[in-house]
Design a protein around this nucleic acid. Structure first.
Lengths: 229, 229
DNA sequence: CGTGATCTTGATTGAAATCAAGAAAAGTGG
DNA sequence: CCACTTTTCTTGATTTCAATCAAGATCACG
């Protein structure tokens, strides 16, 4: 990755220009990691906390509980940020859902470096706040929402994140399988499938093949998701 | 709160001495908030993101979903840190479980200030990583664990956080009610109560009154909690 | 000591999991 | 491009775990 690519990437991620000096200091200890679809991202063993940017692709952070029970705790798209740590009570791994290009920084060095520029530090903190909000919203969903509310919440949030905004408003091409939807919503694939069918019968969505979903009524799906309107 | 109290508090929270200059700069925009047991912490309207330290007491951060459905997304004890934000998809409020003394900083000013000292910045980031780990562990618990595993996880984590370490090892005085345990585990009070009974019958815990729990077998309760040993 | 709140226990219901086929889509190789 | 296989998804039947409903019991507090 060239100096320019690096600066462009950070600009896209942080909505903020990165001074040349900061860019080169960060590049010194940042590692580019390519992750093939379906495989685990390997971080080096020198740190157990990383700040990871997704330069390209879609990835999932998965907590493993044994007995085939797993929970996706974060679904990350291009330009998202992940805090990867090995200090949770269960093992977590970052998997490529598509082929991914990641940019990983050992957390300590990264923080000490960005602290030198208060604007960058603030931008990073903002991103972390967003990730916190998402993680908490996920706890509310997993702890208190019904299967229908979970699936509606998922579709609503995907529409906000990757929805077409032109004449095909509300048309989604889901980057993930039913199994992954189930693993992120704390449900089984059968229940997810049934809820898709039910939302289709309610006239809230339409589907085409496995991955295309058209949201016909944005407001109604938010209502079904128990989200504020 | 005096300058000295302030420095002592930060030392306790961050395991790190706070230089006098930093302490006085932070004090300039930090607000002390007293929260009575059972009431909501009121933050000023000038910011919607705060870094909050618990100087004294026990508090809960609660997400509200309507229809009496609520989920405790974080249980915070003395010397813990909370990222409070108003930008989640559901409304969150911080409640005192006991009378609390909080120290709240508008996030932007706080970050710009602590960035000046890389050691402090790193200490804050470390705390945030811990909070992330907790939030993700909570997602795994809520998404994939059974009622028994949830209650066992709760007791095991409380033992780690507030357990007696002397001759009364494993003796806990729970700071929260059955309703709050249920609200934090995504269960009903009846189910929590039944699981307490079952763990007692299994000989893993003993209880005395409403709040005293003695953990008789730390290893076994971790096994029942689906935690690594 | 009595009153109200909190907790426990039991009976029943219900929402989602599990079990079990099929159907549809995506690969594979000729 | 088309059989053929494999994987993923959908639908139905049944089971199960936790929620709900309903009394009591226990505890805290005035």
């Amino acid at each position: 990755m060239s100096d320019n690519d690096f600066q462009r990437l950070f600009a896209a991620i942080l909505d903020l220009g990165l001074p040349k000096s900061m860019a080169s200091r960060l590049r010194a200890f940042g590692r580019e990691i390519d992750v093939k679809c379906g495989t685990v991202a390997e971080f080096d063993e020198t740190s157990d906390r990383f700040i990871v940017f997704v330069a390209k692709g879609v990835a999932k952070l998965v907590g493993h509980l044994g007995n085939d029970r797993e929970q996706i705790v974060a679904l990350v798209l291009t330009n998202d940020l992940i805090m990867q740590s090995r200090t949770g009570t269960v093992p977590y791994f970052l998997y490529g859902i598509t082929d991914c290009r990641l940019l990983a920084f050992p957390a300590d060095a990264f923080i000490r470096t960005v602290a030198a520029d208060p604007d960058i530090a603030k931008a990073i903190f903002d991103r972390m706040f967003v990730a916190f909000d998402q993680s908490r919203d996920m706890s509310v969903l997993l702890g208190r929402k019904t299967a229908q509310e979970r699936v509606a919440s998922f579709l609503s949030s995907m529409a906000d994140r990757i929805g077409n905004e032109d004449e095909n408003a509300g048309l989604l091409s889901l980057p993930i399988s039913r199994r992954e939807i189930a693993d992120s919503l704390g449900l089984t694939i059968e229940t997810v499938s049934r809820q898709f069918t039910e939302l289709r019968q309610l006239g809230v969505i339409d589907t085409n093949g496995r991955s295309e979903v058209k949201i016909l009524d944005r407001l109604r799906i938010r209502k079904l998701a128990a989200l504020p309107l």
